[in-house]
């Protein structure tokens, strides 16, 4: 899921210090799991803002809520009254949710309350690790199930590079070398063959290099009425 962390409170206060009616909008999706933007975090932020405004002697009205997902307009629609009633909204969903909320309520000022980092896993309580970079053309089948794009610092498709030492990446001794992991896994599977064969250049147009991406799944789209059908 998407991993985010709360923005420093000082930064958020700085965004909203001149507004009075604030809506803190959380999301019950990914950001609840990584404890950055769920109901608990919304309540903490709401409470912190009330403390700030009160001690500063400023009139205020801070409301907290969450919706199922901020990346769906059906759920965003539930916020209508609350957004209308606010001078500014702080969204603590991921960057996707923040933007979609902004799109839906275009005449309202929306601030980000979290920093969104990556797609990753929950390695342990409080430890989140990146696993997939959304390249649009998954190569896990030939890399032992370990992603060379998300887990090699240089995103090399034919690794490792000369900076790999004792299983660690040259960027830090705490970062496992993705290609070392790939090699070990392929060895375990008896597939070192696929490691020795260089792979062709990847089509990066399916990744960010091709610009903003859109997926259109015709099979999922609402059926358009057919002209000249039996009903006409």
């Amino acid at each position: 899921m998407i991993k985010a962390t709360p923005k420093p409170l000082e930064e958020i206060i700085n965004y909203v210090k001149d507004f009075n009616k604030i809506l803190v909008a959380g999301c019950d999706g990914c950001v609840t799991v990584c404890e950055a933007g769920g109901m608990k975090e919304a309540k903490v932020l709401g409470s912190a803002l009330r403390l700030y405004y009160t001690q500063a002697g400023k009139d205020h009205e801070v409301v907290e809520t969450t919706i199922t997902r901020q990346c769906d307009k059906e759920y965003l629609a539930e916020l209508k009254d609350m957004v209308e009633n606010a001078d500014a909204v702080i969204s603590i969903a991921c960057g996707c949710g923040i933007q979609y909320l902004t799109e839906m309520y275009n005449d309202k000022i929306v601030f980000p309350g979290v920093d969104t980092h990556f797609m990753g896993i929950n390695a342990d309580r409080g430890i989140f690790e990146e696993r997939c970079a959304g390249c649009g053309q998954c190569v896990l089948a030939s890399t032992g199930g370990i992603c060379p794009i998300a887990r090699c610092s240089k995103r090399m498709l034919n690794g490792p590079c000369g900076g790999s030492e004792a299983g660690k990446c040259e960027i830090s001794k705490d970062t496992p070398c993705g290609w070392h992991l790939i090699y070990e896994r392929l060895e375990k599977l008896g597939q070192v063959d696929s490691f020795t064969k260089p792979v062709d250049p990847k089509n990066w147009r399916t990744s960010r290099d091709g610009g903003p991406r859109v997926i259109i799944r015709e099979d999922l789209r609402k059926a358009e009425p057919q002209h000249g059908s039996a009903h006409s």
């Binding site: 420093p8 409170l9 000082e10 206060i13 903490v44 912190a48 803002l49 403390l51 700030y52 001690q55 500063a56």
Partner: peptide
């Protein structure tokens, strides 16, 4: 503590 510091409490 951090929050109370940031909010001026």
């Amino acid at each position: 503590k951090d929050i109370l510091a940031a909010t001026g409490v």
